[in-house]
Design a protein around this nucleic acid. Sequence first.
DNA 1: ATGTCTCTACTATAGAGA
Length: 260
Amino acid sequence: MRIATWNVNSIRQRERHVARWLERVQPDVLFLQEIKCQEPDFPRAAFEAAGYRCEIVGQKSYNGVAVLARVPFAVVHTTLPGLAEAHADVAAQARYIEIVAQGITLIGIYLPNGNSGGEAGYAGKLAFMAALRARAAALLAEDADFAILGDYNVAPTDADYAKGALSTGDALIRPQTRAAYRALVWLGLTDAIAALHPGRVLYTFWDYQSACFQRDCGLRIDHALLSPKLAERLVSAMPDRGERGEEQPSDHVPVLVEIS
DNA sequence: ATGTCTCTACTATAGAGA
């Protein structure tokens, strides 16, 4: 089973990129983030023609997630359970979709960046991370096989961002951000890219500004976390760096994970 | 050297977010 995630920075600007990538890579499931449109404006026709069913959690202008799959699936949640009670503002944004496909719970997330809105905005990021940890703990308690993929907006260690790519105090690397990410992983999850490529630098994002891609001034902020039994079936996990060199690319590249 | 891309809103530039 091939599962992927891609922050496309507007699906209407990236429709052709995604259609080409689906045709070339043939993933079974692809999660999208930052589709930046409401459901009626999502360009589903090209994807459906390629055999992918689309489920959209849309929002005007910002955020928005979706899942495209060529295997049967059921949508389980379109909001992160427990977040509304903790932080209503973030809970109202389109950042979460949870499905079950082939007996596996698959979750796509667009975790808040946390650099806008001052400390209240950052608190929303931490609230999302706490609720996500609680959701993962609940799934572990059920002994469910699951994976959480998406744009986490977290560079877990200093090896996960190029020198100069972020300023000190950036919400992607603040100590509380990293502690919250560790608290999630340390439930017993496996960071697929980190596990298969120890010591390698594998960025998933390069800012549009200042020729960041040309200088390889990137970040590893898109991740796939796997539950214990699913991690035993992990075959490969890799960002598709080539997509960043295409014409009018997203600032993120797809991450593809293969499960046996 | 405040450098780029995308969205929206008092339709054409500026502000916000990333």
